[in-house]
Structures are given as structure tokens and as C-alpha cells.
Design a protein around this nucleic acid. Sequence first.
DNA 1: TTGTACGCGTTATCAA
DNA 2: TTGATAACGCGTACAA
Lengths: 358, 358
Amino acid sequence: MRELTPEDNEPVGRAPGERPPGSVPTIHDVAAAAGVSKSVVSRALSGAPGVAARTVTKVKAAAEAMGYVANANARGMSAHRTHTLGVFVRDAATPFYGHLLTAFQEQASARGYRAVTATGSGSFSIEEERRALETLVSLRVEGLIVCSGALPVEDIIPFAHRIPTVIAGRPETDPSVSSVYCDEVGGGRGMAERVVQLGHRRVAVMTHTAASSLTQSARTEAMVQHLRDAGVDVLPFRCEDYGLEIEGTDSIVQAILDAGGVTALMAPSDSWALAVLESLQLRGLTAPNDISVTGYDGVKPFTSSLLGFTSWRQPLNLIGRLSVDDVVDQIEGLSQGARHRSIDGELIPGRTAAALSA
Amino acid sequence: MRELTPEDNEPVGRAPGERPPGSVPTIHDVAAAAGVSKSVVSRALSGAPGVAARTVTKVKAAAEAMGYVANANARGMSAHRTHTLGVFVRDAATPFYGHLLTAFQEQASARGYRAVTATGSGSFSIEEERRALETLVSLRVEGLIVCSGALPVEDIIPFAHRIPTVIAGRPETDPSVSSVYCDEVGGGRGMAERVVQLGHRRVAVMTHTAASSLTQSARTEAMVQHLRDAGVDVLPFRCEDYGLEIEGTDSIVQAILDAGGVTALMAPSDSWALAVLESLQLRGLTAPNDISVTGYDGVKPFTSSLLGFTSWRQPLNLIGRLSVDDVVDQIEGLSQGARHRSIDGELIPGRTAAALSA
DNA sequence: TTGTACGCGTTATCAA
DNA sequence: TTGATAACGCGTACAA
């Protein structure tokens, strides 16, 4: 950590008596301005009983005038409560996590808590993600909501042991931490059922390993499993083998086309499906005319009728709401112990997957 | 804020001697475990000189064993530094803000700061947004980054007066607060130039008022202005008149079609453009065959070659980076006073706007 | 090399 | 109805 140097607090040319920039009025300043003690200020501002109405008015006026905002850090130290939830998301730039974030914020506010968010920074290293979690813990949040398809549960447990924690958006079974997620196995199977129903008998599935994404590996595994059970000829393609990045899609698409006879391609998410469709477009191919394509997640803007993705909708609002409820209930002692809640998703028929023309 | 009740701190059935849940080990616990004083722990953990190597090892082991994470609140109080930047975004669910968030996080980390994010909660009331800003201030962040197309600068100034602040992603000229943004006037004009260049002579522009979005009003106003200057027949349609929500697009599209002879439609953002294209699709119309359509923002996933949006790219990574640099420079005294930096965007030719076939 | 003591801004307890 | 005072967890002079 950087050392504090005298220069930090001494900008040039400040008028005498003026507060140094960066320093904010304290309860003491308000007390002085209002001509009372800081205890009275504290009570007046928090609406505690036992303060003369006239005094309350006077104090509030003084506070308002100098733009006093109580220091939440100090308040937290003395009150042993911060009323703050810590949210960790892997990558705020993707609509999936963005929607979750919004849902968290909304429900946290409804429950009387604030939510602060920390994310990894660009490079998605496990180490970075753990550091982000520590940041949240160091802020003494009262609850933790973790959204990452990659961070191993072992890295989360130590925190969950001390702070009410919920893992949101991914299946988890560890008994020491709660989770709220959309049923990945059911979703993968539902998506596969649809493909089978449409008459496809030779299907490519882009798969993931658990290491790169627990959700995407679970759902694609379920897809493969169900297709096999239905007697379909399945061609799994591990995304990791073609460069993990979504940009490697082109090689996968090429390989799938080279395989010959594939009439449907199942992608692990809408983002990947979009990349697939782009690759196909480069080759003058479209879905579902040349090959059927399915996505997964079903979140705006991918659900646009313009794109017409055949996909699986995860009810992110509900997941976000239940996640917050779970941690808050734990914090307030309304519930004890971890709970795992699986939410059902929903098929989006779309147009990118169609019946196989015999 | 909710009052603290006794129940909050008294969970049922806890084993005697055990730490209450939610309470985390303190420096004092580590000191006891390592058999030294807390000062030594502080110095050992912060790598300060003057601690015996053997003691450092001992302390670190004890801290590690009990999962000690220093309380950033307490640290901030005594050190007068929190090394934390506060980020406010209007709506984390949209890709535009999501990408900005990522850029902030990355650069903050690079500069040795953590970033905590607060957002409004669903309903985008100004009051809510101001409350979110107060949350950040109460956390005693050292710098403030504000991203909202709606929050009036008057509501930001009071904070900017005390904390280094930058308004990111929207043009601002007030001398008491910095800003980093993509040149909206240049962008609106650039987009309009393109439309003129393609030969369109009767063009509909979906406009916004400054009240609903400062950025979108600025760029659409520039579009209208440039089209008029070029002698084009301009038909402005105020989005607010048709229900501010993006869902009202359908009525606007209908009105534009009813107007007759319009060959190009300029939308205020890619999101709106997507809604427009959906409406057209419902009527069996496509762009650019039946009408040319332009968007704005140029951020993934709207930039997909599958959609082929004709749009204007805002360099969000650069905006994010420069915003963080600006606040951090202010915090560290490397720069003084507000600076307004306009960044140039870039045309994305796309396919949704085409030359008018004579 | 280590420990003691104080202050940071706030809330809560208790006395006035 | 108000004011003094003790925590809270940490960093850091200063003393040992």
C-alpha cells in the first residue's frame, strides 16, 4: 500500500480556515455549527427519540447546509452493522451478469441494504477473483453474493464460513454455502429435447470443461447426455481445444462443417451462438436453412425477435431476488444454514433451429 | 435507515466461546494467536521494516490460519486513505455501462485502487441516483466516477466540490467537475454525414430531450442540425411523445411510415435501432431494403456482423481508462482543477444503411 | 525489536 | 433533553 505523505493533504493556494479538499465535514463540525454536542447530532439525524423538536430542526439545517454525510465506516465500527451487501461478478460487461447486478441492487434496496459491487479486472484469473472477494470482506459487508461461473467453491467456502454467502447463477451442492441457480441439467435437457423433437439425428455440441465454466459445462454435458439417450449421433467439440476465447469459434465451426452431415449445432450460450452465426455468415450459410443453431441464457438483447435465437431463458430477475432474500434472511436470523434453490428455465422457440426437412 | 435491534446480534444456539457469525477475526485475535502485540501484527503484515524475520513468519502464519482480512473501514479511519474509487452507473444491465464498468475496474486496479460500484435500483428516479451517490460518499471513497445520462450536473457538483470527481460518458462543461466523453456533436454529425452521403433526402430522426438523456439529446440534435444544413428534409420524432420507454418504438415507427417518403431513420442508440428493426420486421419490412436505419454506440453485442448495424463506435475502454486516470491524478495531486476531454468516435459502416437507389 | 497509547468518526450508555 | 465517555479495529508516534 502506498504510504501517506504530507503532500497528500496540502494542496497549494487554499484559503485559510477552509476545509482541505477531500476532507468531508464530520459530526463534530455539525455539532459545532449547531451549537450542541455530537451525541445530540447523532440522535437528531437518526431520528432517535428524546431530542427537542427545535433542536432537531437546528441540527438538520446545519447538516444540510454543510452537506454532511455520515461516515459509514465509522458508523459500521461502532454499530457493528454496515447494512451493506457485497456483490462479486465475474464480468460486468456481459448482459447476463449485468441483468443479475440490476436485480441484486433492486432487491437489496427493497430489503433496506445497500449493495456494493466488485469485479475481477479484465483478466479473469482466479487469483484476481479471490482478491476481489477479499476487498468485499475487508469492507465488512454483512453478506456476500458471488456470481462467477469459474471461481471454485473451495475458494468461496472460507468466506462463507464467516459471512452469510450465496452463490448466484450457478449450481452448487456444497452444504456450507447457499445457492440460487437455474437448473442447468433440466435446461440442457430441455434444449436437447427440442432439437430431437425437430428431427435432428446428427448433432454437434460445443462443450466446456468445468474448469472454464461450471454452468456451461453442466448444461452442455446434459445436452450430450440427453441426445445420446435419444439415440442421436452426437459430435462433442470442446471449446477449450480451439482456444478458449469466443473468437476461436471460427475453427470450431469449420471442424463441424468438415465433419459432414451435421444438421444442428448446440452452443453453450447466446454469446457463442452469435459467434457461430457470424462464422456461418462468413461462409454464406444461414440458420436454420443450412444448419440449425441453438443458444442458451435468453437474455436481452439476444432475445431480440430480429435475431430469433432458439434459446433457453434463465429467469435472472427471480434468481437475483431470491439470492438477496437468502443472504438477508441469514443476516437477520430469519433462516439458518445453506439452502440450494433450483429455478426452472423456459424454452424460447425462436427461428434459428427448425424442423429437419426430410 | 433501519434501526439496530437487539435480535440482530443474538443468533440462537451458538456454542459458547465461538465467534458470533458475521464477526470476523481482528488484528487483536491475530496478535493473541501469534503471542505478540497488535502493533507488531500491523507492521509485520504491511511489510514495514523493523520486525524480526522470525516474527513476521509467525504472524503471517497465524493470520493465514484464521483467514484474517484487515478491516478496511478501520484502516481508512486511521490512515485517512481508503484507496477506493466510487463508481456510479445508471443501469448496469445495458452493455454500454457494463463495458465502462469493466474498463474502470481494470484501470483502477492498475493504479492501485479498488473500485466499488453502486447503481440506482431499477426505477431510474433522480432521487434514487442521488442516494446512490451519497452511499458512495458515506463509504469515504477518495474519488467519484459518475456515469448517468440523466443525473443533472447540479446534483453532482456538491459532491465534486469535496471529492475528486469525473463525469464519464457524457459531455459536460461545468468548470467544477471533470469529464471524459465521446464527442456527441461530432458523432451525431458524422452519422448524419454518412446518411447524406448515401443520398437520402427525407430522413426521420428519433430525438430525445435533455431531461431524459443528455447524451442522446446532444447527438440527435446534432444529427438534425447537420441534416438541415445539408438541405435534407428532416422529420424529428420525440421519443418522449410516444412513451419514453423503448417499447413505445412501435408507434414511432408507424408514425414515420405514415409520414411517407422517408428513406432513412436515425435512432439515438443501438438499443433503439434494434427496437426499430424489430418493429419493421413485424410489418414485413427490412433495412436497408425498405428503409435505411442507423444506430449509435457501437458496443458489443450490437456490433455483431450478423446484425450489421450502421453505427458510431464510442471508445469505451479509452473513456474508462482516462476517467480513472483523471480522478486518480486529482487524488494524488498530479493534476489540479477540472478537465474536459472529448474523445473521437468512429463510423461503423454496417449494412443497415445503404445508398439510396435512384 | 517490541509494546503502549492515542486518534480516526460514529453510536450507545450513563450521568447530569 | 442534553453532554461526557467508552468502545469499535486499525495505524503509528513514541517509549521501552
